[in-house]
Amino acid sequence: MPDNKSSIDILTESLLSKAKKNDILTDSGVTSEHIKRIISILKDEQFSEDNRKNSKILIDKILDEIVEGQNES
């Protein structure tokens, strides 16, 4: 085994890396914490058919939070 990183670790790293390099996201106040929260929602909702609807709502809330944060800054 070359390393012990799991799939979720790898995709999280990839998403964080791309988000960090994205000027629009960084200028909009999107933080690593926001990205991790979205990943966590999608991971938790992965096997719950009912809750798949919730993931959109929960992500939407995070997006609103980011926009509000940008307005306040």
Binding site: I8, L11, I38, L42, R52, K56, I59, L63
Partner: peptide, 15 residues
Amino acid sequence: RMPVLVDGVYDLDKL
């Protein structure tokens, strides 16, 4: 954990 990405794209598309 592909659904984290696939569902993520889907959800973000919908949003």
